[in-house]
Design a protein around this nucleic acid. Structure first.
Lengths: 185, 185
DNA sequence: CTACGATACGGAGCATTGTTCCGCTTTGTC
DNA sequence: GACAAAGCGGAACAATGCTCCGTATCGTAG
């Protein structure tokens, strides 16, 4: 059984982290999150040994929602390609509204591999499902993997803040267009 | 007139930085570069006040080469689109062979804005030239800016190390395909 | 060749941030 | 109420960026 204070602190930490992430991004100093939650740093590390685990805990619901939207869109959209587009849009929304989240999708940063792993493990199969459907009915070329596509989208969404000249959505749309099997040509 | 020791140190620093960048990436600790060059840290900061300036100095030649290749390719390639493709390939080569270089193209990192500015100021016009040519002869849709395209390519090349499942080149090719004006459809 | 002013150098020192560790406090139970 | 286990807090250490100033070196004028 878990102690009451431990539970309280865990909730406080999640709330504090969510708040701090909004204003300072997911790379905010641990001290800042601890201060916001009114706990010591040891407490943060006990509950969330790595930054990745904290981030995952904070955004778990939204990742789940995104994952669950996959099959729904596939059933409701006009075509598999349309479903893929709508789902990617959802994913991009998620990434661009969380400051700096997209950056951690890049695998080279140490200590974030758990995050990388969680997000991708959860979402790549969904993406693959949509992609496969679009390939099956001939709307999309078959030579791109879901993992690569997700990573690409994540990368395109990285570092878009503070630069109105760079709009990730346009490039993601370009990427999807590149996926399409062109009828002419 | 510049003092002889200052000149010597500048050369030593450039050589040291180039060497360290290869093994530790462009984010290598300043101390490491100073040690490799056999100088103090003050000396590094005097010659290159920001990391960006050091990186620029180290890669200036290669950026120049890439920039100068633009018009040449445009003149020699079969079509404007082919020239754009070849040039982008050159750019991608440049990015993926320099550990972590692609990451600094992202504008959110503080202190690297000078780098961002230099690389982009130099290369965006070249890219625009190729892009415009391809638009003019109807091979490419006219609604994508050179700046956005360059940033997108840079982002796609970020964080590719250590993950054989992620091959930036394939995605960049997808992006270019997305640019194409499809004859059918 | 020497002396001198300007220029450049080195690295100690401060600030920030990540991470660990251990003495102290709180909690649940008997 | 006492006790052991679980949890807590923050001091302390390490890595790194960056600044600052006493000292060393350089170029030159006499």
């Amino acid at each position: 059984m878990k102690r009451a204070d431990a539970l309280r602190n865990e909730q406080a930490l999640l709330a504090a982290a969510a708040a701090v992430f909004v204003t300072s991004g997911v790379d905010a100093p641990i001290r800042q999150i601890a201060a916001e939650a009114g706990v010591g740093m040891g407490t943060i590390y006990r509950h969330f040994p790595t930054r990745a685990e904290l981030v995952v805990a904070v955004y778990r619901h939204q990742v789940e929602a995104c994952a669950e939207a996959g099959p729904v869109l596939l059933a409701s959209a006009d075509s598999a390609l349309a479903a893929l587009r709508q789902w990617v849009d959802l994913f991009v929304d998620f990434l661009v509204t969380k400051h700096g989240l997209a950056n951690v999708l890049q695998s080279d940063r140490v200590g974030t591999s758990a995050l990388h792993t969680y997000f991708l493990d959860r979402l790549v199969p969904i993406c693959a499902q949509l992609l496969d459907a679009a390939v099956s009915n001939g709307q999309v070329m078959p030579d791109t993997g879901a993992y690569e596509l997700m990573r690409g989208i994540g990368n395109l969404c990285a570092g878009h803040d503070k630069d109105p000249r760079y709009e990730p959505r346009r490039l993601v749309e370009l990427l999807i267009r590149g996926l399409e099997r062109t009828t002419g040509h």
